[in-house]
């Protein structure tokens, strides 16, 4: 790790202002992804702002019947919250499908949204990577890319977003609340929060420099069967090859988002009109324009079959 100075934030606005004053500063909350990347010198912040002491660790009801989840609510606590388990089960299921018990105890809601890809070329500092070193090239294109994106990629990057939680947040239409260095607050719909790689794969979210996530809000509960189905190389403690978050009503209508296939949680609202017609029709719309590689083309069939299994499970 490179040396860094360290401070404990006193308020969300002060943290954001401090980040703007220190070029190269990073916020640290759970630290489970950031410290891993710092040890490998993929992340090299000169200053860390520890936000763990901020009062952002509560889950509160909102006036419209939704939930406001503080940025520092740990993944374990969010998954186990009785209101989330009862009314937003797809979110509990997604969280429980990710990482390990130890990591979920530490990892936070905001940090989960901001975690970085597990593309092996992003992690290997001896290899070109446009995300790690803009302009150096993409080693995954033409490399070993079985895990990589099949939709939404670019000539600069085919990395996937690793989060399970974010896929459930996308299907629930969550909103990210932030505070900026000037003290202004804003609300970013989850659909607009994560970016596609384009020519700037190093820019992963809509956050501005120094902007701090303070909460994620969920709208009122969405009726229907809540399912999160994750397919991976081993039964536990592995990232998704493909995952499906779905909420399906008894009449077959509903909503669906995919993980493991793109640079962001993948949802195409127009595809949801096809839900009563079955998995193949939905998958065709969701994956329209897909550009798989020889090694990851299996994900197209896997999406359809996983969707089929999800839809079957909601009919029983």
């Amino acid at each position: 790790m490179n040396p860094f100075t360290y401070e404990r934030a006193r308020s969300p606005a002060q943290a954001a202002a401090a980040a703007a004053q220190h070029p190269g500063a990073r916020f640290i909350a759970g630290g489970t992804n950031l410290l891993d990347l710092m040890k490998l010198r993929i992340e090299t912040p000169a200053h860390l702002i520890d936000v763990n002491g901020l009062p952002l660790d509560q889950i509160e009801p909102t006036p419209d019947g939704g939930l406001r989840i503080g940025a520092l609510v740990r993944n374990t606590d969010l998954a186990a919250d009785p209101r989330v388990r009862r009314d937003h089960a797809v979110l509990s299921r997604a969280l429980l499908a990710g990482a390990s018990g130890q990591l979920r105890n530490k990892a936070t809601t905001a940090g989960n949204l901001l975690q970085r890809t597990r593309c092996p070329y992003f992690y290997d500092t001896d290899q070109p990577c446009n995300k790690r070193q803009p302009g150096s090239g993409c080693s995954a294109i033409g490399g070993v890319n079985r895990q990589h994106a099949v939709v939404g990629g670019s000539a600069a990057c085919i990395a996937t977003h690793p989060s399970d939680m974010a896929v459930a947040m996308r299907v629930l239409d969550a909103t990210v609340e932030t505070v900026r260095p000037d003290g202004q607050q804003r609300r970013i719909p989850i659909a607009d929060f994560h970016r596609l790689p384009g020519n700037t794969p190093q820019v992963e979210t809509a956050l501005e420099p120094g902007e701090l996530i303070t909460a994620v809000t969920l709208p009122p509960p969405v009726a229907g069967g809540h399912v999160y189905r994750k397919v991976r190389d081993r039964a536990s403690y592995a990232f998704a090859l493909v995952s499906v978050a779905a909420i399906v009503k008894p009449d077959g209508s509903g909503r669906v988002a995919l993980g493991g296939v793109a640079h962001k949680p993948w949802r195409v609202e127009a595809a949801e009109a096809e839900l009563p017609r079955g998995a193949k029709a939905v998958a065709n719309r969701l994956l329209a324009g897909a550009q798989p590689t020889a090694d990851n083309a299996f994900k197209l069939a896997l999406v359809e079959r996983t969707l089929g299994a999800v839809l079957a499970s909601t009919r029983t």
């Binding site: 360290y6 640290i28 759970g30 891993d36 763990n52 130890q102 990591l103």
Partner: peptide, 25 residues
């Protein structure tokens, strides 16, 4: 790197990977 669990300790009663957290935190 938080992958093996050999460093697991209990902090305020909860199990965490002690390799993926700074002492000053």
């Amino acid at each position: 790197h938080g992958q093996c669990g050999a460093c697991t300790v209990l902090v305020d009663g909860r199990r965490i990977n002690s390799c993926l957290t700074l002492a000053v935190m």
